[in-house]
């Protein structure tokens, strides 16, 4: 790691001022848990002159609270471990608790923050390797096109074929999540507007401006929601495909459905056709749920080595839907002796 100055702001607003363009530092980098920031520093992908440390800001209060309007508030610095075990989320925003609990490892979940999970950079091995000057680093080509692309996107026209790495982002998407900001004129941005495809800006994945800092997230409660991820190593790996599903069920019939996939496209990938197909299905109609899940594959254009992800995506959508309905099929852990 290159030596840097560590700035300890006393509030998110103060952090935003330090981070703002034209401030005291040439390349300030915001750090909460620091999992991805330290990785970038060690790999030589980032050489900041200042690290602005927002870890512990807000840590004295509760990580998750219920607001008067019925929505749920998550602090930006809440750890994934806190989200995974939070009673409010487990009861009323199950998909968030499940997605947080599925990310990374116990030791990392104890450190990594909610906002950091949203804003972590892609895990593409060409992006992560300092010697590959890829499009994302200002280079002229995406090495995944003709290279090793088993873990890359099956959706999107390129020119960069990363998959968005966040577990939490698709969960927020299906709960109409809002990302609250300080340091700018706007006070929030919808989770659905937080990310952009590579053709809308290749050097970053998000639509935040320099100096905007996430303070907290809010979302709509939805007890009938569920998450499922398929990973090469199910206990700890980046998902090959994941799905988040949020349902409103009345008298045994699905009245509303919102479905979002992760790890298959450069952004959290909404699946409106699946949601529309689930609408009107009986909660016990496995054939209808399976048929709706098949629609997740529509428009997929796998690369040379990642066609397997299409089937994993369909399975993830089906299983996340069953999980949202409380009809989870036994996982590998539960069927072990």
């Amino acid at each position: 790691m290159n030596p840097f100055v560590l700035v300890q702001p006393r509030s998110h607003a103060q952090a935003a001022k330090v981070m703002a363009a034209g401030g005291s530092y040439r390349l300030p980098v915001l750090k909460a848990g620091g999992i991805d920031v330290l990785d970038h520093l060690k790999e030589g992908l980032l050489s900041p002159d200042a690290v602005v440390n927002v870890r512990r800001l807000g840590a004295e209060g509760p990580a998750v609270t219920r607001l008067a309007d019925g929505s749920i508030r998550i602090e930006a610095g809440a750890t994934l471990a806190q989200l995974a075990s939070d009673p409010i989320l487990l009861a009323d925003a199950t998909v968030v608790a499940q997605s947080a609990g599925s990310a990374a490892t116990p030791a990392i979940r104890n450190i990594a923050s909610a906002a950091g999970n949203l804003l972590q950079r892609p895990r593409c091995w060409y992006y992560r390797h300092a010697q590959f000057e890829c499009l994302k680093k200002g280079g002229s080509m995406c090495f995944a096109v003709d290279g090793e692309n088993a873990h890359h996107a099956i959706f999107g026209p390129g020119p960069c074929h990363i998959v968005h790495p966040s577990n939490l982002a698709p969960a927020l998407m299906v709960l109409d999540g809002q990302v609250h900001l300080t340091g700018s004129k706007r006070d929030r941005i919808a989770a659905a507007d937080l990310f952009h495809m590579p053709d809308k800006g290749i050097l970053s994945e998000h639509n935040l401006e320099q100096g905007e800092v996430i303070t907290h997230l809010t979302l709509r409660p939805r007890p009938t929601s569920g998450f499922h991820a398929v990973k090469a190593k199910q206990s700890f790996d980046w998902p090959s495909a994941l799905a988040c599903v949020s349902l409103r069920v009345e008298e045994g019939v699905i009245r509303e459905a919102s479905v979002c996939a992760g790890a298959v496209a450069p952004v959290p990938w909404m699946l409106p056709r699946v949601g529309a197909a689930l609408k009107g299905a009986k909660a016990t109609d496995d054939a209808a749920i399976a048929a709706a899940a098949e629609l997740a594959a529509e428009g997929a254009k796998p690369m040379r080595d990642n066609g397997y992800k299409v089937a994993l995506l369909v399975a993830s959508v089906r299983r996340a839907t069953l999980r949202a309905l409380g009809r989870e099929t036994p996982s590998f852990r539960e069927i072990r002796p």
């Binding site: 100055v5 560590l6 702001p9 607003a13 103060q14």
Partner: peptide, 19 residues
């Protein structure tokens, strides 16, 4: 540096390093 960054948010942020 902390003086510049602190603005009107009360106490300025503390700054450490790089040494």
């Amino acid at each position: 540096k902390s003086g510049r960054a602190g603005g009107s948010d009360g106490d300025a942020p503390s700054v450490m390093g790089p040494n």
